[in-house]
Design a binder for these strands. Structure first.
Length: 297
DNA sequence: CTAGGATCCTGTCAGC
DNA sequence: TGCTGACAGGATCCTA
């Protein structure tokens, strides 16, 4: 799905466009995609949009909230005076809606919010606002990289000694926000091979990785996420992290911008993984002479 | 407890 | 053309 930067991009967009609007009606096209009773949210006003990791919380008046998780292929498309679309990028962003992938349609006072989701892994769930933080998913989330101390991160890596570092980065209960794109990009920036065991990273490496995670996600959020967040807005701007900033993700066969070696793709932790085989060594760097393995390039 | 694999679902693409 | 298997920007459940 949409990883943290994309979800944050959606949050900002919804904050601008749907807050203060009233829910007029809700059409559920796919039962699996909507958990709750439609009558509990119709007529309520949207007060606030929050985010926990990759989960979006829409607070309504009367102490009711919606939790929205896009998982792999979810998208939220607001169609009002302008169209604001974000989430899993696809032609749906500019298509006529509803369409085959539309799962829930929320009609608002001044526009319509479409929840599309090709694979139906995502969902919208109705719950009392007071219970959001008690939700099993929310409760288990770890800190986001910006809020995590290096000691905390290093200790977590030690705790998951034998797991691939990539698997660790994808585990939201260890560190929250990264998904397949930003895990690959962060590992590339930090020059760490995704198949290294978490326990064998030394502290300077862990620090580089944590910093890289913040960096790649900051960059993406600033550009509106990797998706075409503002696709149809008048200014024509669009978020295009993959085009503009990604160095390895979906770049297999292309030259590494750092060393020129050919980027490869292989399966790691059950996911397609992009690596520069030269910059990202799959064994511990035993180069002598430099203390603690710190290399300043 | 951790680690790894299967699984939910639809759609697309490469290879025969 | 039609079929088949692999794979996909996530998270959970099951097993060892």
């Amino acid at each position: 799905m949409p990883e943290l930067p994309e979800v944050e991009t959606i949050r900002r967009g919804l904050d601008e466009y749907i807050v203060k609007q009233k829910i007029v009606s809700v059409d559920v096209y796919c039962e699996k995609s909507f958990c709750g009773v439609v009558g509990d949210i119709v007529g309520r006003k949207i007060e606030k949009i929050r985010r926990y990791g990759k989960a979006l919380i829409v607070d309504l008046d009367g102490g009711v909230s919606l939790m929205i998780h896009l998982r792999m292929t979810g998208q939220l498309i607001y169609d009002g005076e302008t169209r604001y679309a974000a989430g899993h990028p696809s032609e749906n962003f500019v298509a006529k809606l509803p369409n085959k992938q539309t799962r829930v349609v929320i009609k608002l006072s001044d526009g319509v919010l479409y929840f599309n989701d090709q694979r139906k892994f995502g969902f919208i769930k109705v719950l009392p606002t007071a219970r959001v933080e008690q939700d099993e998913f929310v409760k288990k989330l770890a800190k986001e990289p910006w809020d995590m101390s290096i000691d905390d991160f290093y200790e977590k890596l030690q705790r998951h000694q034998k797991a691939c570092i990539k698997a660790v980065l994808l585990d939201q209960t260890i560190i929250c926000g990264l998904g397949n794109i930003y895990a690959d990009e962060a590992l590339y920036v930090a020059k760490i091979h995704p198949e290294r065991r978490a326990g064998e990273l030394d502290k300077p490496e862990a620090e580089k990785l944590l910093k890289a995670a913040c960096e790649v996600m900051d960059e993406s959020i600033e550009s509106g996420g990797s998706t075409m967040a503002t696709y149809v807005r008048a200014d024509g701007t669009k978020g295009d992290y993959l085009e503009k900033f990604a160095k390895v993700f979906r770049k297999e066969g292309l030259a590494c911008p750092r060393c020129g070696a050919k980027i490869i793709k292989k399966r790691v932790a059950g996911r397609g993984t992009h690596i520069c085989p030269k910059c990202q060594k799959d064994t511990v760097d035993t180069t002598p002479a430099v203390e603690e393995g710190v290399r300043n390039d």
